[in-house]
């Protein structure tokens, strides 16, 4: 039996989670309540984060943007601050589920849940985002590229919550999010986030392993060779080598491994078209 608690501050929320070992945080409930309905989880309490003002909203900081954990997908899908190399985040938010679910689900819940197929993970890894984690001891920042450690495992300690996502300020260069899915609104079979970076690109692959896949070495090797199909193919192959996709209803592991180089090449060519 999960009782709903509605704290008004982050301190109160993490205090409750520390006190109640069988409680779980709840943001939009879009995944949590679905799991409850399917009897996949047991929790003594759901600690709702919806009433905590500091978790709402997108603000400019000294270094870029701070996106509060309770920011809904619908808000990000319509956010004018997400331009240039951050426009991929806006594109990804607008492709999650459907409009009604986008009114419910949040970036904090999606990153907290760390579903390997969640659309934000690749975008945030590509965008050099940091995850702000807060517990009773205070807050810390973890790079998105390090955050996911195994299937549904992250650097988030029990009792910590995702309070915000930090992104560097938008740069006026193109970015793209490519999602391959069986029907619009489904989770990705595979996805690619790609942002222009001088004479190179930053790329992260989603839904093809326990976490987003990014290789700074492969990106360095591709630098200056964006018009060379052989170099692009080698880059895609290097990312596929790092992938560890599952066989599931959305596709076989082998299918996903074949998709990666093609989707990466397509995303890079999208960027060339946007210049």
């Amino acid at each position: 039996m999960s009782f709903v608690l509605s704290p008004r501050t982050v301190e109160e929320a993490v205090g409750l989670l520390a006190e109640l070992p069988d409680a779980l945080p709840m943001s939009g409930g879009a995944s949590l309540v679905a799991m409850k309905n399917a009897r996949l989880i047991e929790a003594s309490h759901f600690v709702s984060l919806a009433g905590i003002a500091s978790l709402h909203g997108i603000t400019a900081t000294d270094t870029g943007l701070r996106i509060g954990g309770m920011t809904r997908h619908a808000q990000l899908a319509a956010c004018d601050l997400l331009t240039g190399d951050l426009s991929m985040l806006r594109q990804a938010a607008g492709q999650i589920a459907n409009r009604v679910v986008r009114n419910m689900g949040t970036i904090g819940g999606a990153v907290g849940n760390a579903d390997p197929a969640a659309d934000y993970l690749a975008v945030l890894a590509c965008g050099d985002a940091h995850v702000e984690l807060t517990g009773t001891e205070g807050s810390r920042l973890v790079a998105m590229t390090d955050y996911v450690t195994d299937w549904y495992e992250t650097l988030r300690e029990p009792g910590e919550i995702v309070t915000a996502i930090h992104l560097p300020a938008a740069r006026p260069v193109p970015s793209v999010y490519r999602k391959l899915c069986r029907v619009p609104g489904d989770y990705a079979t595979a996805s690619v986030a790609c942002a222009s970076d001088g004479d190179g690109v930053r790329v992260a692959v989603g839904a093809c392993g326990h976490g987003p896949i990014r290789s700074r070495e492969a990106e360095a090797a591709l630098r200056g060779n964006l018009r060379d199909p052989v170099a692009i193919a080698a880059f895609g192959a290097a990312l596929a080598d790092l992938a560890d996709p599952v066989d599931d209803v959305r596709g076989t592991s082998e299918f996903r491994l074949r998709l990666i180089p093609r989707m990466v090449a397509a995303a890079i060519s999208d960027l060339e078209g946007k210049r």
Binding site: V4, S6, G29, F46, S48, V101, N103, M104
Partner: peptide
């Protein structure tokens, strides 16, 4: 005034 799923909304979060 926002459409949502009633099945994913906890009654205890509707106050």
């Amino acid at each position: 005034d926002v459409p949502v799923r009633a099945c994913l909304t906890m009654a205890g979060a509707c106050g």
